[in-house]
């Protein structure tokens, strides 16, 4: 009973907040609704018994991606009138995307009602007496080890690429030399002088 209530609550909130992401006028409000949607999706994962995935969803999406997204949204100078002005111009493209999505939805529903492909036999069977984390870990590090490492390498390449693209040495900047700062002692950093009247100071 309580699972049913929780399921409908989470499911309703996911859909409602996903709709609000699109309908909210203020982009920051959209991000907030998006975070609520992620959070409720994590709730649905919990109900499905995948507590590890649920926590990862919150940590990765809510914690990291959404924070970065918020940074971008808040740092950009967004003119709301200008955003709405492009409505007619982008209408054909938007309509096209909407039609494609709707067609896919109908297609998926049709395929589902025709009976699914027997994928369950190909996936590794779930072991009931082990915790979520152990099951995922054993699969990732034995059966899917090469895919897992490939994913890691792709991420590494992406990271190096991002650094290589954005990191450039600008001339004329002074950077911190932490070791030199730590070596500094008061007697070499300060000087006691006694200038005469009207002579000024040499710095």
């Amino acid at each position: 009973m309580i699972q049913l209530i929780a399921f409908y609550l989470f499911a309703f909130l996911v859909i409602a907040s996903a709709a609000m992401v699109v309908f909210a006028r203020n982009p920051v409000h959209s991000v907030m609704w998006l975070i609520l949607a992620f959070f409720n999706a994590a709730g649905l994962m919990l109900l499905a018994g995948a507590e590890f995935i649920a926590m990862l969803l919150v940590i990765v999406y809510v914690g990291a991606v959404a924070v970065l997204f918020l940074f971008v949204v808040m740092m950009l100078d967004i003119d709301f009138a200008e955003l709405r002005a492009g409505f007619v111009r982008y209408l054909p493209l938007g309509a096209l995307v909407a039609i494609i999505l709707a067609a896919e939805l109908v297609f998926a529903l049709g395929a589902w009602s025709a009976g699914g492909i027997d994928l369950a036999a190909r996936a590794a069977p779930a072991v009931a007496d082990k915790s979520n984390i152990q099951q995922i870990g054993e699969l990732l590090y034995t059966r899917y080890i090469f895919l897992f490492e490939a994913a890691g390498i792709v991420l590494l390449v992406a990271m190096i690429g991002a650094i290589a693209l954005t990191h450039r040495q600008r001339g004329g900047t002074r950077s911190q030399k932490i070791a030199a700062q730590n070596r500094r002692r008061p007697d070499e950093a300060t000087r006691l002088v006694d200038p005469g009247v009207g002579q000024g100071m040499e710095l």
Binding site: M32, I35, E51, M55, G63, S131
Partner: peptide, 25 residues
């Protein structure tokens, strides 16, 4: 007594930053 307790704490503490960001913005 959940078996992902530590991850739960990490998840919750990553939510904590939103209070600060939202108040500042």
């Amino acid at each position: 007594d959940i078996n992902v307790g530590l991850l739960y704490i990490l998840a919750v503490s990553s939510l904590g930053v939103y209070g600060v960001i939202l108040s500042g913005w």
